[in-house]
Design a binder for these strands. Structure first.
Lengths: 189, 189
DNA sequence: CGATGGCTTGAAATCTCTCAAAGAAAGTGG
DNA sequence: CCACTTTCTTTGAGAGATTTCAAGCCATCG
């Protein structure tokens, strides 16, 4: 799906890693429900399984089940909240901190949906893609990751991220998960 | 209003310049309607006039007038869209381009609501505040503005911004207003 | 007048990028 | 299983962008 498209249905990411930095279980394009033109492209990092739903169906559902509408609306508000944090992250933190922040977010979000145990999770992503997401050069991403590893904060092998020292990483990242708006039960780090 | 607050009503900016980079006429905290905790602080740049509305009232209104709910939802989606563009702007464009981009956005948004004529508008903002918004140092903001002026792209005096060469500024900014999701009638630049 | 806030300038320090090359790892086809 | 190709990671060094620190200027305000 590309910028400029005018989709007539929304979809849900059921399985895999998608782009625009979206994770399994997310519904990245509620956008398309109320905005006619797509203003960003969506891609996949890994092979993904997605479900589609017609806009009409969804709108009808929202109309008859205000709770659902509220939940989805809430979802878009949280997205916006996350974007705000990213603006801060990308605009004001230096590379090391920025990287740490994404990693913290990744862990917490995946834990919240049961896709990460302890402080370890899959990270099937290339350094070039990370660079892209963080607005850094791939070379610099590499060096920053080495630093983080060298300081014993994380381990990274075979597409698996392990946070060895959560508290330090959190401090480096200046990470406070409030912006993710998780339920208390999900928020435990 | 501060991070961590749990507001029971929303408000509308009726007049003035508010912070989190919001402009007159916006409704910056629909957020609070569905999310319990405020995850960002709101401030004002200039003295502002705001209207308040109880959450209950608003929810009730949405329930009885789905069109209103849809419109407000749409609003939050556009916000998210703008945030996405900002992530791009702040993360990937260098200072000169970044600055040009905000100025373009400012002009277009103010024109859309009739607050800017031609390519000129009020910009009652200090360079320090700009620096803050752009994630740059105040010193650098100053230099970039000088460049832009030196190249004859803008003029800036007494809190008034005048774009002297819109097309060039747009190019420097790599600005495409699609992400603002304006109606065609509003979008004319 | 002195104080304050905002703008401007210069110079050195820092961060990050680009370019270029080489080493690992992973996938492909024989 | 091996050669081969491709993709990803790692390294070094120089160039560029941006920051910090420090100082000076200018207007406004009490």
């Amino acid at each position: 799906m590309w910028e400029g498209d005018r989709p007539s249905r929304s979809f849900v990411l059921l399985e895999g890693f998608g782009c625009t930095y979206k994770l399994t279980g997310d519904m990245p394009d509620l956008q398309s429900l109320h905005l006619k033109v797509l203003d960003n492209s969506l891609g996949t990092i890994t092979p993904c399984q997605v479900g589609f739903i017609q806009h009409e169906t969804l709108l009808d559902l929202c109309h008859r089940q205000p709770r659902i509408a509220a939940a989805l609306w809430r979802e878009t508000l949280i997205d916006a909240s996350i974007f705000r944090e990213w603006i801060l992250n990308v605009g004001r933190r230096e590379a090391r901190s920025r990287m740490a922040h994404v990693l913290c977010e990744l862990i917490v979000r995946l834990r919240a949906v049961g896709l990460a145990q302890d402080h370890r999770c899959k990270l099937p992503i290339t350094q070039v893609e990370m660079a892209d997401a963080l607005g850094l050069s791939a070379v610099h991403v590499n060096r920053v990751l080495q630093e983080l590893r060298g300081d014993g904060l994380i381990r990274l092998d075979g597409g698996t991220l392990t946070v060895l020292d959560w508290e330090s990483l959190r401090q480096v990242a200046d990470f406070d998960p409030a912006y993710l708006h998780l339920q208390r039960s999900q928020a435990a780090a």
